[in-house]
Design a protein around this nucleic acid. Structure first.
Lengths: 159, 159
DNA sequence: AGCAGGCATGTTATAACATATCAATTCCTT
DNA sequence: AAGGAATTGATATGTTATAACATGCCTGCT
C-alpha cells in the first residue's frame, strides 16, 4: 500500500519513531498523553491513511477504550491541537501527522484511486493564498490546502 | 455586512448581473437552468455568504420548491459542477461563485468573526501545492484552498 | 487527612450534513 | 406516439459532529 509520499517505507520503525516523538512533544509541552490519546495516535499511524472518526471509534471500542462518539472526537481534537494529527476537510477524515509535533501548515495530496494521502509542507503566508490574504488585509490563522487527483501508481490503469 | 472581498458593493446589481451570466452560461453549455436551480443560485447570491445545505433548503421550502434534503443537494451539485457555486469544505457550506461560470480554482478567505467569505482565484498548478504535486508525480484534478482567520474589520475589536 | 479546582472521561441524546432508492413527471428525440 | 434521458418528489437511512450533564481522578492547598 502506497501511502505517505506514495512510496514504501519501514512502517514499524516509522510508527515507533513518531510515537516516541509524540511522547517527547507532550512531555515538553505539559500535555497529557493519556492511554486513549496514545492509542488513537497509534491507530492512525498504523493505518497510515485518513480514517473517519467512526472508523477510529470502532477500533478503540474493540480495545475497550470507549465506544461513544465524543471519545473519538476528543482524542482527535487533542491530537490535532497538539499538531500530531490533521483533519482532511475534503474527506471528513483524520490522519497522523507525517512530520514532527511542531507547528506547521500542511498541504495534502489525496488520491481518489487508492485513497492514499501524502502530506507536503507549505509556509502559511507564502504562495498564492498568502498573496491574496495580504492584498485583502486578511489575517490567516489556519490554512486548508488539499488537492484531489491521482497518484503516480493510480495514473497507470487509466492509460 | 462586509462579504465578498470584505467590502461593500451594489448588491442588487451584482445579483442581477451574476444571474444573467449564469443564464447565459447554461444556455451556452446546454445545461438546464430549472426553477429550483435558479432559485438556489439566487438565494446563495442574495445571502452572499456561505450557506449550509439545510439553511438553503429551509428557504427553498418557504417558497414551495421542495423541502427534502435531496432537493437542495441536487441543486447545489448542479451549481457546483457548472462552476456557478463552490463548496467550502472547512464549513460544509456552499457559496455562489463570485466570478463567472468559467472553470477555475478558487481559494477562500474565511473570517471567523463575521463569517464572511472572500473568493480569490488561483491557478491550480501554480504555487506550493502545484510544486509538491509535480515533485510527487501527482496529477491534480481539484483543489481545496481555504484560509481561516480574521478579516480587516474583525481584527479591530481584538486590539 | 480532607477538600477544592481543573482536566479527562463516561454516557445519553441529538444536531447537522449527506446519500440511496424508487416512483412520477417532464421534455426531448426518433 | 413511443422511447429514453434528465429532473423532480418522496421516504428512508447513513454518516459526521456536538451538546449537555455526570463521574472519576489527579494535584495542590490548608
Amino acid at each position: 500500500m502506497a501511502a505517505i509520499g506514495f512510496c514504501a517505507h519501514d512502517h514499524t520503525a516509522c510508527v515507533a519513531d513518531l510515537m516516541a516523538h509524540a511522547r517527547a512533544h507532550c512531555e515538553k509541552e505539559g500535555l497529557k498523553f493519556t492511554p486513549v490519546r496514545q492509542r488513537t495516535l497509534e491507530i492512525l499511524l498504523r493505518e497510515h491513511r485518513a480514517l473517519g472518526a467512526y472508523d477510529l471509534l470502532a477500533q478503540l471500542a474493540d480495545e475497550g477504550l470507549g465506544s461513544q462518539p465524543p471519545v473519538a472526537y476528543r482524542a482527535l481534537d487533542f491530537l490535532v491541537k497538539a499538531g500530531l494529527a490533521h483533519k482532511i476537510e475534503a474527506l471528513n477524515a483524520y490522519i497522523a501527522c507525517a512530520h514532527s509535533g511542531t507547528d506547521h501548515s500542511p498541504a495534502f495530496l489525496i488520491c481518489r484511486g487508492c485513497k492514499a494521502v501524502a502530506e507536503a509542507d507549505t509556509a502559511m503566508t507564502s504562495g498564492r493564498l498568502g498573496d491574496a490574504a495580504r492584498a485583502a488585509g486578511f489575517q490567516i490563522e489556519h490554512t486548508v490546502v488539499e488537492a484531489r487527483g491521482l497518484c503516480p501508481s493510480c495514473q497507470e490503469p487509466a492509460r
